[in-house]
Design a protein around this nucleic acid. Structure first.
Lengths: 343, 343
DNA sequence: CTAAAATACGCAACCGTTTGCATTTTAATT
DNA sequence: AATTAAAATGCAAACGGTTGCGTATTTTAG
């Protein structure tokens, strides 16, 4: 068996030349003679030489690996986002170390610890919705590991992030419904702690103002996104003295739960009550009664952009090793209302 | 700024002791005196010492990293599977390096090359449906990197794998339809090259035999899973002289495409024609006309099991460094028909 | 009080590669 | 043929940690 892994040392010995010559030959270094270069490269191929990246990582203090932390892969938004991340990374010869926080702050901290030890070149993270302290992110800054936040952004200053501006899309969504003649547009929103929930409210108000309508706060209801709280929200909306005839839901999961409940209440979707949502799942197009429209958040693009700016930061790191404080990237994609083809 | 990364060397110098003592102290080595141990550990904490894993990986010839290769994350099956993988891995202090092959053999090869260089401790892979040559897998064996295949298994001998036995589920599915009175049950199958496609056929035949019915091969149609080929398949089934009144589709994506097309043909789903599928997407329950039943393939469990056996292999590697040929793990979970709640 | 045993620590090699600098070889010039 | 410039190669340190083995120091036992 044996199958000893071959190293440049081995090659050097066989060719009776020095290790450094082998190393340079393999890198096409100009100072190596053509003949030896050929010899080395050929023998390397014959012996199936494979560079030991762990040695190189160690030596170069660079791993060409970036850590990605997100709440959970099973959620469609995140699995598409990481798809964009991975694609962009592999295009630039970077590799992705993956971990899920499951919205658990403790786990999030552990993961960051692990990634620090692995000496990843950078981190991409969509934070847990339960994270309240941010010192573990600060610690990364201290040891000079660049971080780019995406989608779920902490309320910190001086960070890089890419996110989707939910105002524009929301505004479009509400406007869309108002134009259709609805006067009481309900909103089933997410936790108030999330920035993107607030954005939605702002967008809502903006659309009302634009249409010269009065804004009724009781039509916007915060939930924790569980089916139960969604049902509560619907009960509230329907029992309101105003005739809610349309609902904007926080995302497609919420929309599905909502529509299921509405059906149970014997309300006809998109007839008695119309629904507009966020996320634009590919699967919703197969629904009998899909939301009329959905605000697209471009998860793939977000992932890609995030990776792109991270690589930029990594490249820049060399320039300004001495804290040559660069500006902070705040990349905001506009969300956009996509009207279902069926309508 | 500076923020020099602290090493054990630094600690040693400050405490005026040797590097090796520091190393051992940090590892609670018994031969280190209690006093020095305390000193070292305290100073390490004060200086925020973080072990440089890249150095350790290199030194120990072990990375505690396993590579995961799958066709694409965006597919629900795979994102759930990797969830299981990652959970189990992180539980055992392993880390996951992720890559998508997009069903492209060339990309698959490149990824394997990269992972070899990264010296991952093992690889988990669900192969691309277009992969026809298997030598890149053989090469892994040569350099002693254990591989566990899951879900999509190549037709090779002497490999470890975990998969779902599609026969049982398929058999149950067909049986379910036959019991409902259907006599011509069509099947929209996947590529013949995939083992799991063959399994489905076997399961189909098994159910027919069990019900003492004759098996008509023309009712089983292979596709490449694209919407077009699915539509072709349906055309074929419907134009058959036999009245196809039920269809078993390769998976839920296919089912959705199929049902959409059937609707276009003005056929009433689950009335004119009944559909049973595989995968059991959480989302299908929201469909107006969901498949009557679905064969559950336990992606999370598969991922977990795969990771489990991989770790076992890695552990074993130490034992039999000299090709002490161990047996091959062939772990087969039974698939199971899940009947939709709505029925 | 001394020899032996136990305890605590240091030395140095090693893991595989890269790279600045010194050294040798070759080629060009006079 | 001697001198010099240019081209090719080698030496050795460094990256940060682990570990076998040797040594100094202390403890224990006789």
């Amino acid at each position: 068996m044996s199958s000893k892994v071959v190293t440049i040392k081995e090659i050097a010995k066989r060719l009776n030349i020095s290790i450094s010559t082998v190393s340079r030959a393999l890198h096409d270094h100009p100072s190596i003679g053509l003949r030896t270069k050929k010899n080395v490269q050929q023998l390397a191929k014959e012996l199936h030489y494979e560079p030991n990246q762990t040695a190189i990582f160690f030596q170069q203090r660079k791993t060409f690996t970036i850590g990605v932390i997100l709440p959970q892969l099973a959620e469609s938004f995140f699995s598409t986002a990481i798809s964009g991340i991975e694609d962009y990374a592999s295009l630039h010869n970077y590799t992705v170390l993956l971990a899920q926080s499951y919205d658990d702050e403790t786990k999030e901290r552990q993961i960051i610890e692990t990634m620090k030890h692995h000496r990843v070149d950078g981190i991409l993270i969509s934070i847990s919705k339960n994270t309240s302290q941010y010192d573990h992110f600060e610690s990364l800054k201290k040891i000079n590991i660049p971080v780019v936040f995406f989608d779920r952004i902490p309320k910190m200053n001086n960070i890089h992030y890419v996110a989707c501006n939910m105002q524009t899309g929301t505004s479009e969504a509400v406007d869309f419904l108002l134009k259709k003649g609805h006067r009481a547009v309900g909103m089933i929103n997410g936790p108030e702690t999330l920035l993107c929930s607030q954005d939605r409210v702002t967008g809502y108000i903006h659309a009302m103002r634009k249409n010269r309508l009065k804004y009724d706060p009781s039509l916007i209801i915060s939930t924790d996104l569980t089916p139960e709280s969604v049902e509560d929200a619907i009960d509230q909306l329907l029992s309101s003295r105003r005739k809610t005839s349309a609902i904007v839901t926080f995302n497609d999961y919420v929309a599905l739960d909502a529509m299921q409940y509405l059906k149970k209440l014997k309300l006809k979707i998109n007839k008695d009550i119309q629904v507009v949502s966020y996320a634009n799942f590919p699967l919703t197009q197969f629904l009998e009664n899909a939301p009329l429209a959905s605000v697209e958040q471009y998860p793939y693009l977000q992932g890609q952009k995030a990776m792109e700016t991270l690589l930029e930061l990594i490249a820049k790191k060399k320039d300004d090793e001495e804290g040559n404080n660069t500006a902070y990237f705040k990349i905001i994609l506009d969300s956009k209302l996509v009207i279902s083809k069926k309508n």
